[in-house]
């Protein structure tokens, strides 16, 4: 009986199909278990980053890709996520603007730059340079702007600077309309 099943020509196909179905069911189960946790965490992470830029934030609203920040029910500024590609992959940057469209603060959300070199872009020594700058000043000093690149990580630094600048101009345009 056992041999009869194993020798059947359709057996390999049926076997593979069963394996695939079992694994798909398994993956669906795991995914439905973890996806709410992942989603929650992303919201929490964005909230924490916004709070680090706007310490007095009471609440925020999401309008398309712009986060509108309120302090005591008054509009205090805007925030958006800029992304550029650095030396080792994508860099996502949260940028906060005050109500006059100057930069309130910048924080790196995610990056995969070289540890010890490009990864220094996450440190406040680099990100604090963006504070209070307007879009026209945002460029590396080597390119005529006001920002010092991280030593040995010009590509990573330039990626952040360019991403922030481009997205900032785009967002300000859409906000002024």
């Amino acid at each position: 009986m056992r041999n009869k099943i194993l020798l059947n020509k359709a057996y390999p196909v049926v076997f593979l199909a069963v394996i695939v179905i079992v694994s798909v069911v398994l993956l669906m189960a795991v995914n439905s278990m973890t996806s709410p946790i992942v989603k929650n965490m992303q919201v929490e992470e964005i909230k924490n980053t916004l709070r680090s830029i706007f310490p007095e934030m009471s609440q925020y609203e999401v309008d398309d890709e712009v986060y509108i920040i309120y302090e005591d029910d008054e509009k205090a500024g805007y925030a958006f996520i800029a992304s550029g590609s650095g030396y080792g992959g994508n860099i996502d940057i949260m940028v906060g603007l005050d109500s006059g469209f100057g930069i309130k603060g910048v924080s790196i959300l995610s990056q995969t730059e070289t540890p010890g070199l490009g990864s220094m872009i996450t440190e406040s020594l680099f990100t604090d340079q963006f504070k209070e700058l307007s879009a026209s000043d945002i460029a590396l000093k080597a390119d005529g702007g006001k920002i010092d690149a991280v030593t040995g990580a010009t590509i990573s630094s330039r990626a952040v600077v360019n991403a922030v600048k481009e997205k900032m101009i785009e967002i300000i345009d859409s906000l002024e309309k």
């Binding site: 694994s23 398994l26 993956l27 795991v30 995914n31 973890t34 946790i37 992942v38 965490m41 992470e45």
Partner: peptide, 15 residues
Amino acid sequence: TFVTIFSLLFEAYFP
């Protein structure tokens, strides 16, 4: 299948 399970769990608990 096991790689995807691991990746999903990792994403949820060690982002």
